[in-house]
Computed example of a mutant assay.
Amino acid sequence: MSQYRIAVLIGSLRRESINRQLAHGLFKLGPADFEFHECRIDDLPLYNQDDDSHQAAPVKRLKQEISGAKGVMFVTPEYNRSVPGVLKNAIDHASRPYGQSAFAGKPAGVIGASIGSIGSALAQQHLRNTLAYLDMPTMGQPEVFIHAKEGLFGDDGQIGEGSRKFLQEWMDRYVDWVKSHS
């Protein structure tokens, strides 16, 4: 049985998302005592502060999943040089109302892929700024900005041979990061 449950927020809703495939590949690189749970964010209403006193059931579920986790992993594409709106919406919901953030103190890892040559570098930078405000100790190194191209994934859909060692190093560092903050 796992000792470390990790809430995973994937910034893409697309079924065939590169970032969803990346996340699932990363899960397989994690140790046996880590369990990765992909949090559903496609059913969240748009954030409206008027709803803070009566949050919708999907919002309560998301907050509970994050609160019950030992850490959070963000796997995000880059849309228009920033994080996708759906991910920002989920972050806004789970961090509200003010003083009741599910994120506070949770160790975070940020990673992502994009078809652009800089990967998701700018989205990750914007996300890191938000996570700093939310009081999430966020792993700084190694930074991983993946240019999604041929060979990133093998025929079996898992992390390709050429990227496996590099991404295993990221996962090992993330595991150590979570353990050091537990």
Score class of each variant (00 low, 15 high):
73 M>W: 14
122 L>W: 09
140 G>T: 15
94 A>H: 03
141 Q>H: 15
59 V>Y: 05
114 S>D: 04
43 D>W: 07
124 Q>Y: 01
46 L>M: 14
67 S>F: 04
136 M>A: 13
39 C>D: 03
74 F>C: 02
87 L>F: 00
98 Y>D: 11
118 I>W: 12
49 Q>D: 12
138 T>V: 12
102 A>T: 06
92 D>H: 02
71 G>I: 08
66 I>T: 05
65 E>L: 12
67 S>P: 04
66 I>H: 03
88 K>Q: 00
76 T>K: 01
70 K>F: 05
114 S>T: 06
125 Q>P: 07
63 K>V: 10
85 G>Q: 02
91 I>M: 02
82 S>Q: 00
98 Y>S: 12
123 A>V: 01
44 L>K: 08
88 K>L: 00
71 G>E: 07
54 H>K: 15
67 S>A: 15
139 M>Y: 11
109 G>Q: 08
127 L>P: 01
81 R>Q: 09
81 R>C: 02
119 G>C: 02
135 D>R: 10
116 G>S: 15
76 T>L: 04
113 A>D: 00
120 S>E: 03
131 L>W: 07
76 T>E: 01
87 L>R: 00
44 L>Q: 09
65 E>A: 13
136 M>F: 09
96 R>V: 07
84 P>I: 01
126 H>G: 11
128 R>I: 05
128 R>K: 14
56 A>F: 05
73 M>V: 14
140 G>V: 13
57 A>K: 12
77 P>A: 00
41 I>G: 02
41 I>M: 04
133 Y>T: 14
96 R>M: 05
57 A>R: 09
106 K>F: 07
79 Y>P: 02
128 R>W: 04
133 Y>H: 15
127 L>S: 01
79 Y>A: 04
40 R>G: 11
55 Q>D: 06
108 A>P: 06
107 P>W: 08
66 I>G: 02
94 A>D: 03
114 S>H: 06
135 D>S: 13
102 A>S: 13
88 K>C: 00
76 T>V: 04
57 A>Q: 13
40 R>H: 10
61 R>V: 13
54 H>Q: 14
107 P>A: 12
100 Q>L: 08
107 P>N: 13
45 P>M: 07
70 K>A: 13
128 R>L: 04
